[in-house]
Design a protein around this nucleic acid. Sequence first.
DNA 1: AATCAATTAATGAAATTATGTATATGTATT
DNA 2: AATACATATACATAATTTCATTAATTGATT
Lengths: 113, 113
Amino acid sequence: MSGAPIDSFKALAHPTRFAVLQSLIGKERNVGEIEEATGIAQPGLSQQLAVLRNSRLVTTRRDAKLVYYSLNTELFVDLAAILAQFGPVDDANIPPAVKRRFTTGVATFARMG
Amino acid sequence: MSGAPIDSFKALAHPTRFAVLQSLIGKERNVGEIEEATGIAQPGLSQQLAVLRNSRLVTTRRDAKLVYYSLNTELFVDLAAILAQFGPVDDANIPPAVKRRFTTGVATFARMG
DNA sequence: AATCAATTAATGAAATTATGTATATGTATT
DNA sequence: AATACATATACATAATTTCATTAATTGATT
């Protein structure tokens, strides 16, 4: 057993996958573009993309032959909310979107032992 | 090579280490207390604590025979700031403390390709 | 010196990851 | 329907990491 958010953290805590995610900030890219941006050979890249897909850090969209990847920005907000729980209690540090998540219960799991 | 924040993410993306971190939210604990809270045998726990120390997610303080662990809350703010970069561009999602980090440059590395 | 809390070292088994090659799938083109 | 292209999956194997134990070590206290 491992827990969904732990899997997400594990998925992003990886040099090449992190580089892939960085290449997707602000723009979607197809696999070929990611391959070019990161220099990882196709089958290996496809594996790493599968890890990112399974952890739901990215979403895909197909346009004809090409598959476009983009960040699941919602999930990143959730993950940031979880990490914020380990930060200072100082209310100024709790972001609006994160605060929303607290009351919505998304990050609640991390408060339970 | 791996990068400091990636190492931090990797360190926390681990079921027992994450449990240790959770047990430290809001209060410091000595090793014996953590051992009791998590049920991990002592030498193994000490190893996991070493990982957390090396990634600077926790700090320690010695009081006589006991070593007390607490969260490095500052670092968690930084990590949250890094993840926020992968979130929606919507300004409402960017927390004050995180915004401060942006202008301070702490999270800048993640913007570079 | 004896004891206690914690860390480090050392070991071997088990699991994960990386890499390369080959194959399969889905779509488009002819 | 055959071919080509982009991407995904399957496999095999080598390399690395992780895990759990046991043992030894350090630092502080009595």
